[in-house]
Design a protein around this nucleic acid. Structure first.
Lengths: 216, 216
DNA sequence: CTATACAACTTCGTATGCAAAACAAGCGGG
DNA sequence: CCCGCTTGTTTTGCATACGAAGTTGTATAG
C-alpha cells in the first residue's frame, strides 16, 4: 500500500489532465516535454503513454505523433452502449456471487448517496462521485470475473470526459440515487435479471443526461 | 507496411508461445531471460510484457513476479459469455454500417470456409483458421466502433487457449460454417437483431464444443 | 514567385547502466 | 531443533545515451 510508482504517477497525472480537459482532445503528447514537466525520465512517461493508448485515451498517428483522442458524439454514444452491456453483465453476476458483506456495503453506499442528493456544495458533489465510484467498484468485485475488470478499464469513466460538457441536473441525480437503491435491492434479492436490467437503465439514463440521444 | 518493430516482434512471439502452450500457464516471465532468448534488449521485452499484462495474458503477482495467467474452466466460460456479448454487438452494428464491399467479402469468406469443411488436411485446417479470423475481423471493422476493437483485443482468440484441450468435431465445424453463412446473410439483409442473435449462437456453440457448459 | 533539394533539428525506438526492492541462503541465538 | 537476522544474489524500475526516422526551415534554381 506504499508505492505510487513513478510510472503510475505519470499515468494518473496524464489521465487526470485528459479527463479534466487540461490536455484537450487532439493535443500532442511529447515524451520529453511531459517527462520534464513531471520531473521524471522518459521511460515511465513512455510506459504511461502506452497504457493510455491501449485504453483508448490517446492515439498514435502515423509518424511521430501521439495525440489525445477526441470523442465524437457518436463514439460517446457507443461507449455508453458498451458500458451498459458490461455493467449489466457485472450486475447480473453480482446478484449471484455477492457476499453478504458486499451487499451491505452496497446498501450503505446507496444510502450515503441519497443523503447527499441533490448535492448542496462542492464537497457534497465530490463525496457523491467517490461513493458512486465505490458502488460500481463493489459490483465489479462482486461479479467475480477478472476478465471483466480488465474490460471495464477501457470503458469506465469515459463518461467523465463528457462531464465537462454538461453537468448533471438535480432531476437526473435523484433518479440516479433511486437506481442505486434498486440495483442494491435486486442484488440482495438474488435476482440476476432484475439487477442487470436496472443497471442497464442506470447507465443509459446517464447517457441521455449527458449527450444527446444519438438519433440515427 | 515495413516495420515489424522489435517490441511488436517480442509481443507476438510471446503471445504465440503463450497461446500455443510453449509457455504454459503459471510460467514465470523474466525480462532478462526473455530478452536474451529473443536477441533483444530488455526495453522492448518490457514493453511487450506490459501489453500482455494489460490484455490479461499475463499477471503481475506481488513482488517481482510476472506469470502466464492460468484460465480456470469457470473463467473460460465467462470469457465466452463476454465474447458473445461483444461479438453480438459488433454483428448488430455491422448490419447497419457494413459497406457492399465488406458484405461481399463476408460471403466470399463464408464460402471459402464451407469449401474446406470438414478439413481433410492440416493445410485445410490452417486455411480455415485464417479465413475464420478474417471473417470476424471484417465484422469488427464493419462495426465502425474503434472502442469495440480495443475491447476485443482482451477477449478475442482466448478460445484458442482451449484449442489445446479439445479439437473441434466435424459436426461442430459444419454447424460453424452454417453460422457464418447465416451471419453474412443477416448483415447483407440489414437486419441487426438477426445478425446479433446468429453471432451469439455462433460464439456460444463454440463454447460448448470446447469446455463443459459451466454448470453451477 | 514557386517548387525542390538539402541541412539542421525533433522525436521516438532501443540499448545499457545504476540503484533499490525482493528473494534466498546461511549463520547465530534461543 | 526451530526461528529470526543478516548478507549476497537476482530482478526489476528508472535514468541516460545513442542512432534512426521524421519534421521543419531555408536557400537556390527554374
Amino acid at each position: 500500500m506504499s508505492e505510487p510508482s513513478a510510472a503510475d504517477h505519470a499515468y494518473e497525472a496524464l489521465r487526470r489532465d485528459i479527463l479534466s480537459g487540461t490536455l484537450p482532445g487532439g493535443a500532442r503528447l511529447k515524451e520529453q516535454a511531459l517527462a520534464k514537466t513531471l520531473g521524471l525520465s522518459r521511460t515511465p512517461v513512455r510506459d504511461a503513454l502506452n497504457r493510455l493508448v491501449h485504453e483508448g485515451f490517446a492515439e498514435r498517428g502515423p509518424g511521430y505523433s501521439t495525440r489525445v483522442t477526441e470523442f465524437s458524439d457518436d463514439e460517446l454514444a457507443q461507449i455508453f452502449e458498451l458500458r451498459a452491456m458490461l455493467e449489466g453483465y457485472a450486475a447480473r453476476r453480482a446478484a449471484t456471487h455477492a457476499t453478504a458483506d458486499e451487499i451491505a456495503r452496497l446498501h450503505t453506499l446507496a444510502e450515503a448517496m441519497s443523503a447527499k442528493t441533490p448535492p448542496s456544495s462542492a464537497d457534497d458533489f465530490s463525496a457523491l462521485a467517490r461513493a458512486n465510484e465505490a458502488f460500481h467498484a463493489t459490483i465489479h468485485e462482486a461479479a467475480r470475473s477478472p476478465r471483466l475488470s480488465i474490460l471495464m478499464a477501457t470503458v469506465i469513466e469515459v463518461g467523465l470526459v463528457a462531464r465537462t460538457y454538461r453537468t448533471y441536473s438535480p432531476r437526473d441525480l435523484i433518479r440516479s440515487a433511486a437506481h442505486h437503491h434498486e440495483i442494491a435491492d435486486a442484488i440482495a434479492a438474488r435476482r440476476p435479471e432484475w439487477a442487470q436490467s436496472a443497471m442497464v437503465s442506470h447507465v443509459l439514463a446517464a447517457r441521455s443526461s449527458i449527450g444527446e440521444p444519438a438519433a440515427r
